[in-house]
Design a protein around this nucleic acid. Structure first.
Lengths: 343, 343
DNA sequence: CTGAAAGCGCTTACAG
DNA sequence: CTGAAAGCGCTTACAG
C-alpha cells in the first residue's frame, strides 16, 4: 500500500497522513491516534527507500564484517555483542545492516556504505592498535561508534569499551595475592587494541609486585578452546610450569581445563585459572559459585551501548563524541586457590 | 557524490553512466570499462534508496530475529548459519538486513518489511511444525526460502534442509548395531520441525530393530551444554540408565561429557555418545578421529544455499520453488563403543 | 549507441 | 490545522 492509497482510504491528504505518522506537532492528537491505528490495521508502513531518499537518512545502522580467515560472526563473543545491538535496535526501531566483505576491501566497503546511503552510521569492531578506520570515517563524514578503542587515533571519537587494563591488572593482582608468582597469560591477538591493553594491565601488576615477567609465559593468538588447550599442554610440559593461568576468554579457559584434566590436575587446587568472562549466553559461567573465577563484563551490554550511542549520534546532528568506559567485576569461582607448595 | 556530478566529471550523460554501471547491453564495452574504473576511483556508488525506489527492488535479503527469551542470534548454530548466508551475500554483492522484533510482533514484522520495501526477500528460520509464516509470506508476495521445512504447509515453497529423519535413523541404527538397547535421545525443542523429524528417525530405527521406545529416555529442550549436563546426570542416576546417548547438538554432547566425567565414566567405553554435528566453527569436533562420533552436516553450507536460492528467486521473477535436501554424514569418533557387559 | 524527461513514493518548505 | 507542489537521486521507456 502506498501513501496516496492509504490517505484516500482514511480521507486525508497524503501530507497530513505523513505528518501524523512522523509525529509532527502541527497535527491534531486525535487525528494522529486515528491515523496510527488505521495504518497498523491496514498494514501500511511508508516505503523505506522513498522515505530515506526524501529525508536523507535511514533508520539503519551498519556493521562491516570481514570475510577472510575466520568469519567474525561465528565468534561467540561477537554473537553476544550483536545480540546487544539487536536489543537496542528493537527498542529504537532501527534495523541492522550487515555487509560482508573481503578483508582487503574494507576501506572500499565503508566508502560504498556511505555513498550508497544505506545506513545512517556504523559500529567499528575489533579495532587494531593503529586502526585506520576512525580517521577514514571522520574524513568521510559517516557517523560511527567504536567498540573498544584505537590508542593510536588522537582526535576525539565515540567509543564504548571495558577497562581492559584495569581488569587484567586486578586479575593479576588477585593471583599474586594468593601467592602465585608464575602466572601465564593466554591473551588474544595483541594486534588488537583490547589485547594490547590487557597485557599492559598484566605487566603493570607484575611490576608493582616486583615479579619479573617471563616472555615464555605470555602467549597471543585467537581466543578458542583449541588455543587454550594447546598452550596449556605445552606450558605444563615445560621445565618450570606456571601455577596460575590468566586467560582472555572463557573459551580459552575451557581449553585450559581440558589440558589440566588430561594431566589429572584439579583446577582451584593444583592449577589456578582466571579468565576474562564476557558473560556469554552459550558459554555460561554463572553458577552461584562459578566454575571459573573471572573478570565479568557483559559484552551484550557493550553492544547495547554502542547501538544507543550511534543511534543518538545519527539523530542528534553534530553532538560532541561520547565515551563510555565499563568496569569488569571480579567474581571468585572454583578455579583459583593459593599455589601448591612444591613437593 | 551523485550521479549527476559523477556524469559531469566523466563527460557523459547520467543516462549513459547509469546504463554502463548496470550492465545494460546498449553501451560500448570500452565506455563501460572506463566508467566502472572511474566510479571505483572516485568512490561513486549509486544511492541505494534512489535506486531501489526506481527499480522497485533492493539488493538486500532479510532475517527477522525474535527477541523474547533467548535471543536466537547468540545460538552458535545460528551464528554459523549466518556466516554461510554472509559468504553468499558477499559473493553476490547483497547485504543482509536483520530486524529484531518482539516475539508476538512477528507477523507484523514481516508485513512491515514487505511494506517498507527494505528487503527483496527473507530467510525463514526455526520453522515450527505448523509454522504460519510460509502461508503468510506467500499471501503477502514476499519472496522467501525456509531453512528447514514446515511439515504442515502443503503448497510448494522453497526450502533447504538436511535430512534430519534419515540422519537420526542412521545414527540410532549405528548404536543399535553396536549392541545398545537403552539409547537416550536428548533432542531439541520438538515444537520445531527439525526436532520433530529427528525423533521420527530415532523411533523408526528402534521400531525396525524391535526395540521398544522408552519415554523416560526421550527429552526435549533447548540445545545447550547445561541441558545436556542436567539430563545426563538425571538419567545416569536413574534405576535403568542408558548405555548410549544420542544428542541433537555438539553443545549438548559437551554437557553429557561433563556429567559422565563427574561419574568417572569414560566416553566410548562406559558410555557411548553420538551427536548431530553442525560442524560449528567454535564448537569444533574435527580432530582426525573426532572426540564425538557424529552425524556431520555443515550448517554453514545450508546458510549459503538458503541465501543463494533466495537471491536467485529475487532476481528470477516467477521461477517455481526449489528444494534442496542435504545429507548428514556419519563420522565415527572416540565416543562410541559396544555397551559394557552388565557386571 | 546516446540523451531529455517522466516517474518511483515519500517529506517538507510554502501558502493558506 | 491542512493541502498542492517541489524535490530527494536514481532508472528506463521513449525518441533520436
Amino acid at each position: 500500500m502506498k501513501l496516496k492509497e492509504f490517505a484516500k482510504l482514511v480521507g486525508m491528504s497524503p501530507t497530513t497522513v505523513s505528518r501524523a505518522l512522523n509525529g509532527h506537532p502541527e497535527v491534531n492528537e486525535q487525528t494522529r491516534a486515528r491515523l496510527i491505528a488505521a495504518a497498523r490495521q491496514h498494514g501500511y508502513s511508508p516505503n523505506a527507500h522513498a522515505r530515506s531518499l526524501a529525508t536523507g537518512h535511514a533508520s539503519v545502522i551498519g556493521c562491516v564484517i570481514p570475510m577472510t580467515g575466520r568469519n567474525e560472526i561465528v565468534n561467540p563473543i561477537y554473537a553476544d555483542f550483536l545480540a546487544g545491538v539487536g536489543e537496542e535496535c528493537a527498542r529504537r526501531r532501527f534495523d541492522l545492516n550487515l555487509s560482508f566483505v573481503a578483508d582487503d576491501d574494507q576501506a572500499q566497503a565503508y566508502r560504498a556504505l556511505k555513498s550508497k546511503g544505506l545506513v545512517g552510521g556504523v559500529i567499528v569492531q575489533f579495532p587494531g592498535h593503529d586502526d585506520p578506520r576512525p580517521a577514514m570515517l571522520q574524513q568521510m563524514g559517516l557517523p560511527f561508534v567504536v567498540h573498544g578503542r584505537v590508542s593510536g587515533h588522537r582526535a576525539p571519537y565515540s567509543w564504548v569499551d571495558v577497562n581492559n587494563q584495569s581488569a587484567f591488572e586486578r586479575a593479576t593482582g588477585f593471583l599474586l595475592q594468593l601467592g602465585h608468582r608464575r602466572i601465564a597469560l593466554l591473551n588474544g591477538d595483541e594486534r588488537l587494541d583490547f589485547a594490547h591493553r590487557r597485557r599492559e594491565g598484566y605487566l603493570r601488576a607484575l611490576r608493582d609486585a616486583g615479579v619479573e615477567a617471563d616472555p615464555g609465559l605470555m602467549v597471543t593468538g585467537e581466543m578458542t578452546t583449541a588455543y587454550g588447550y594447546a598452550h596449556t599442554r605445552r606450558l605444563l610440559e615445560g621445565a618450570n610450569p606456571p601455577t596460575a593461568i590468566l586467560c582472555a576468554a572463557t573459551m580459552i579457559a575451557a581449553g585450559v581445563q581440558q589440558a589440566a584434566e588430561e594431566r589429572k590436575l584439579a583446577l582451584g587446587a593444583d592449577l589456578s585459572v582466571l579468565c576474562f568472562d564476557d558473560d556469554l549466553s552459550y558459554y555460561a559461567n554463572r553458577e552461584a559459585v562459578p566454575v571459573f573465577t573471572g573478570m565479568r563484563s557483559p559484552v551484550r551490554v557493550a553492544g547495547q551501548r554502542c547501538a544507543a550511542l550511534l543511534i543518538d549520534r545519527i539523530g542528534g546532528g553534530e553532538a560532541p563524541p561520547v565515551q563510555e568506559l565499563l568496569e569488569a567485576e571480579l567474581v571468585v569461582g572454583r578455579s583459583t586457590a593459593p599455589p601448591r607448595q612444591p613437593r
